[in-house]
């Protein structure tokens, strides 16, 4: 694993990582899990596209393809994805943060 990813992910050297946000990693881990089923995938997409969702506008306008790319990947892909995203001006961490949360009152 590259040193740069180690510094940014909790997979190693976590105590030195000021950017570790458990909620971001939870949205990635469980988003990937629920993405496997067409039913829950559609439900998430409908929720994230709902005009009441605070992320909806930027999700639909900009981040949907990148978020989908993350959710279609697996944990073992993290390092490769991070490198690819960095080459495109993003990073695993910044796109992970664009996975919209779920709001229980209209999910």
């Amino acid at each position: 694993m590259s040193t740069s990813l180690l510094q940014r992910s909790p997979e190693g050297g976590r105590e030195f990582d000021p950017y570790f946000v458990p909620d971001d990693w939870a949205r990635l881990q469980y988003g990937r899990l629920l993405w496997r089923s067409a039913r829950t995938r559609e439900r998430l997409l409908a929720h994230w596209s709902d005009p009441r969702h605070p992320y909806a506008e930027r999700f639909l306008a900009r981040y949907r393809p990148l978020v989908e790319r993350l959710l279609e990947s697996e944990e073992a892909d993290n390092e490769r994805l991070d490198a690819e995203l960095r080459a495109e001006g993003h990073s695993l961490r910044t796109i992970m943060r664009e996975i919209p949360p779920v709001f229980g009152d209209f999910y």
Partner: peptide, 12 residues
Amino acid sequence: AELAYDAMIGSE
């Protein structure tokens, strides 16, 4: 995970 997503903040 699906049950948990139905039990988040704001849920029934």
